[in-house]
Amino acid sequence: MNNHSLFDPAGPRTRRRHLILEIVTGAALAGLALLVLATLTKKGVFSADAWAPFAQPGLWKLLGQGLLHNIAAAAVGMVLSLAVGCLLAFGLVSTRTFLRRLSRVYTDVFSSIPLLLLLYFTSLVLPNYGLRLGDFWFLVIALTLYSGAVIGDLIRSGIVALPPGQSEAALALGFSQVGTLVRVLLPQALRSMSPALVSQLIILFKGTALAYVLGGYTELLRSATVIGQYFTQSLLQAQFVAAVGFLIVNVLLGVLADSLERRQRRLETQAPSPAGSDSLVLQTA
């Protein structure tokens, strides 16, 4: 994102005014922070009593295990939804009308249904059909149903944005239709869409927290709640620690997505690719 300013660089008088404003807002902010801290201390948020359970290593083990469970579900979900997404993308760019329409209906429907509804669906309906899987698989299947649709559409737009010469050349060289897709178009599409795919991984990771509702899979939010049940005085502290855990993983993934996007843009400026590849990748929740 270009960070050009809309305004001319400030002159000496404006700079002075900005400095005064900065000091004033800084002071106001510090005052506010102190007030909040004082109130929190009065409520006993920082009291040794509330943080005492955190001295036990077993508690950290529980929290760490929770975070690992989140990461595991997101990782397995991502691998499966990449596979589903590739198949869907092949359907979406297929020359067969029926296959194309079918894939389109699937992507449109499943990308607009809330993940939580899918999670309820997998956990309630699948056991009726004899699929007695654990809560982990219910979560992963729900994630795959949703994310596969989104990734399918992403890969499709990556394939469509490639210059037509790519597939023409591959076909002229004697690649089959499938070979063209799998060996020529798909790798390029995956590479150009890699920042968006990492953004989707962030969405998946956030979605794993929904497994809280199943209760049978101790992900981070659930383990924080469990801690809160044993140590009622430290529920808020445990939830805070859980939130920080999610925050750190997501920020790291966000940094990865940004660096991938920068690399992508560098590659594009080196070898100019045709217009139409939208460089503005906004992460939507």
Binding site: K206, L221, A242, N250, A285
Partner: peptide, 11 residues
Amino acid sequence: RNIPLPVQMVL
């Protein structure tokens, strides 16, 4: 933006 909505809701 980086704390999942379920976590914020429960908190």
